Amino acid sequence: MKSLVPVVLCCSCFLTGCSLLSRFGYYKRPTAERASSEEAETVRFPDSFEPGMHLNGPIMEALRVAMDDFLPPGSKVKGDNDRIAECLSRWSTYDTSVLQANEDLYFVSFLPRLSRCGLDAIVLDAGATYAIDGKGRILDVR
């Protein structure tokens, strides 16, 4: 009987797209797509990042914690409208703001922009604001 467990697990993984493994916290992140070498040759890197957006390590950690909780890798939003659910399942839909209140407190806000998906709809309570401490713990979510 014990020897059937791996076989059943493997079969269910193939049939369900390994959703069973993702329920246990396993998710293989896809590798980033690379542009062709011809396209890459057209890119000119800046001489300075001074005018750019600067995120220090603690801000990046607070952002990562909030992102992984709000829309975990491999997850899909469920809802009555498939187009809206698909839209809300993509990170490119959201505007994200990070506010460092002090050395040990960060607020991370996610606000959806459904117009990026070609949708003219209003969804209440689709975003969230996280309070994250300097240890990377979620203090509260609204």
Rank of each mutant, 00 (worst) to 15 (best):
M1C: 10
K2G: 15
K2D: 12
S3P: 06
V5F: 10
P6T: 07
P6Y: 11
L9P: 05
C11I: 15
C11S: 09
F14W: 13
F14S: 10
L15C: 06
T16A: 04
G17R: 07
G17H: 05
G17F: 07
L21V: 05
S22R: 14
F24N: 03
Y27R: 05
Y27A: 04
K28P: 01
T31C: 04
A32Q: 13
E33N: 08
E33R: 11
E33I: 10
R34T: 12
R34G: 03
S36P: 01
S36L: 06
S37W: 10
S37I: 12
E38I: 12
E38M: 12
E38W: 08
A40N: 07
E41G: 08
F45C: 11
P46A: 11
D47H: 11
S48A: 10
S48D: 10
E50S: 14
P51V: 10
G52A: 13
G52H: 02
H54R: 14
H54P: 04
L55C: 12
N56D: 15
N56P: 09
N56R: 15
G57C: 10
G57P: 06
I59Y: 02
I59R: 14
M60N: 09
E61P: 01
L63E: 02
L63K: 04
R64L: 11
A66M: 05
A66P: 04
M67P: 00
D69M: 01
F70Y: 06
L71G: 00
P72C: 00
P72D: 00
P73C: 03
G74Y: 01
G74M: 01
K76S: 04
K78W: 04
G79P: 02
G79E: 03
D80L: 12
N81H: 15
D82H: 09
D82F: 09
D82N: 09
R83W: 11
A85I: 02
E86M: 04
L88A: 01
S89K: 00
W91H: 06
S92G: 10
T93G: 03
T93I: 07
T93W: 05
Y94V: 00
D95M: 08
D95H: 13
T96C: 13
T96G: 02
S97E: 07
V98S: 08
L99H: 12
Q100G: 08
Q100F: 01
A101F: 06
A101I: 10
E103L: 10
D104G: 10
D104S: 14
L105R: 15
Y106W: 12
Y106I: 05
F107A: 11
F107C: 04
F107G: 08
S109A: 12
P112R: 00
L114W: 05
S115T: 12
R116M: 06
R116E: 05
G118P: 08
G118T: 09
L119E: 03
I122H: 15
A126P: 04
A126Y: 03
Y130N: 03
D133W: 07
D133V: 04
G134N: 08
G134V: 04
K135Q: 15
I138S: 02
L139S: 08
D140K: 15
D140Q: 14
V141M: 00
V141H: 00
R142S: 14
R142F: 13
R142A: 15
